[in-house]
Design a binder for these strands. Structure first.
Length: 276
DNA sequence: ATGGCTGGTAGAACCAGA
């Protein structure tokens, strides 16, 4: 049972809450640009993926100095790892293992009695869309399948954000034709994501604010000589909400300039503002 | 059609990313 929590707001008052998600590709290596982002944009909550650090070595001090005193971690050595960093209290931390292999790819919390916040790092899925048992692609589909079962049982207002590693719309990739058989944009992945989305009528907030006809990316490969000119991006990072939170969302921004900061991640931060 | 780059950890002719 969830224990009762102090309300975030007084009756009749609205509270603005800005929630960010960012695949940081090593929080220790990139702590300088994380701090810069928090100073420049000051979200109330930051969800990180690919922190690449065990919990004991997570750079909590850097966040506490900036007023982020509430931290929920799920890390492991070397790879993966997720974290929720917050100015407001976090409760009832959970960590699901949707790949059933012990990898640290999810952490969830309850925020001030108002809603649950679920931060996920879906597996990339390997080089090729190969269905053989134990392939990375198979594992990715299994992961989304277990998320789907989890989603069916939800009964609270929920924000689901993170690096989904799937770009569902044709305008979510630089070339639908050229990526149709590339992992992240295959029909079978999109079908699995659609199925997950249908279980709780999840709303894809980015596409509420940026029309689906408009190309929108959150990731550009390190391998391009000039990522901005070639612009071979994909929209892999998402902010979904259950329908009860849809009319609380007032903006959604994709912070593209961050891709040009020093020692950048290949993903950029996304930020949604809520009025609760 | 291919390869291009990145960080962590071990000390790799690695792994994982996507």
């Amino acid at each position: 049972m969830l224990r009762p929590l102090p309300p975030l707001k007084h009756p009749g008052m609205t509270t603005t809450l800005r929630i960010a998600s960012w695949n940081i590709n090593s929080v220790r290596f990139r702590i300088d640009i994380v701090e810069r982002f928090l100073r420049d944009h000051g979200p109330d909550i930051l969800c990180l993926q690919e922190t690449k650090v065990v919990d004991e070595q997570f750079p909590e001090g850097a966040f506490r100095q900036l007023g982020y005193n509430h931290i929920a971690l799920n890390g492991q050595p070397m790879h993966h790892g997720v974290a929720i960093i917050s100015k407001v209290p976090l409760h009832n931390r959970t960590a699901e293992d949707w790949q059933a292999n012990g990898e640290a790819r999810h952490v969830g919390v309850e925020v001030a009695g108002s809603f649950r916040l679920e931060n996920v790092y879906v597996p990339a899925g390997g080089e090729a869309p190969d269905f053989t048992d134990g392939s990375k692609f198979r594992q990715k589909l299994d992961f989304v399948g277990r998320m789907t079962e989890w989603s069916r049982a939800l009964n609270k207002p929920t924000i689901l954000t993170g690096d989904f590693n799937i770009a569902p719309l044709e305008t979510d990739v630089w070339s639908h034709k050229q990526l149709v058989n590339v992992v992240s944009h295959t029909a079978v992945e999109i079908e699995a994501l659609d199925k997950l989305q249908a279980t709780a009528n999840w709303v894809d907030l980015a596409r509420q604010f940026i029309p689906p006809e408009e190309p929108l990316f959150t990731w550009w490969s390190y391998r391009a000589q000039d990522w901005e000119t070639s612009n071979r991006g994909r929209r892999l990072d998402h902010m979904w909400v259950t329908p009860d939170l849809l009319d609380k969302a007032v903006s959604h921004v994709v912070h593209k300039p961050v891709r040009n900061w020093g020692k950048p991640s290949d993903h950029i931060p996304i930020v949604t503002e809520f009025r609760l």
